[in-house]
Amino acid sequence: MYRSNNMKIRMMAIVMVALVSIATVGAMSAEDIVRQMDALETFDTSYAEGEIVTTDRFGVKTSTFRSWSRGAYDSLIEFTSVAERGQKVLRTEGELYLFYPDAEELIRLQGAALRQSMLGSDISYEDMTGEKDTLSQYDVKLVGNERISGRDCYILEFSAKTRTVAYPMQKVWVDTGTYMVWKGEFSTKAGRLLKEMAVLETMTVDNRTLPKITKISDKMKRDSATEMRLSRLDIDVDLDPVIFTLQNLTW
């Protein structure tokens, strides 16, 4: 008898949790999901170290880097591997600048140049330093749910509001629990697939689940894929504001 009551209570609890979940899901608009997704990827400040491993028809190439970011708009990447040592990519005030130790001037990337491959990888400069205010650039639609890597995900479709974005159409799979993007497909307006992204491994930092290893493949290149592997990620660290200035870039 006791067992039977216990079963009933348990069943009721499960139903209630399910109903609450459904109600919560129903209440979440696509925009809310995107806000949560952007919030997860945006830090007041952060410092990261990692490597970019590109595999193509010529073999495997590894470049190491360290990066600093502040909010949604400022970021600095410095390459530390021998072949690229000292090269830096700064994104600030909506502009992207490249610093090369052998060049006497900074190179400002704009327009189509932002879509150039970074260090021959499948990642463009825009992918690496892209702004994280998705809703200002895209209209979003929730089109369904799917399980990815054993996790329930929302499927969101984005269509660009402006012509200035790298990918006019995006389809992303966002974790319903952590709001981390597990998978992404980036296409032209006509639907031609340009790039694919998938998270292979995650890590937990400051109670947030974040990508540790992300695989990106540029569909315009044959037999090419790039893995971005983070070995260290510190959130809300003290950063000197000077890091994100042009003056600092040339030091």
Binding site: T54, F58, K61, S63, A83, E84, Q87, L98, Y100, D102, A103, E104, E105, I107, M118, L119, G120
Partner: peptide
Amino acid sequence: DKVTIISSTAARGNNAMT
């Protein structure tokens, strides 16, 4: 005049030099 040139490298990265 000074010109900065940009190219892919043999290390399959990018570089620029003036």
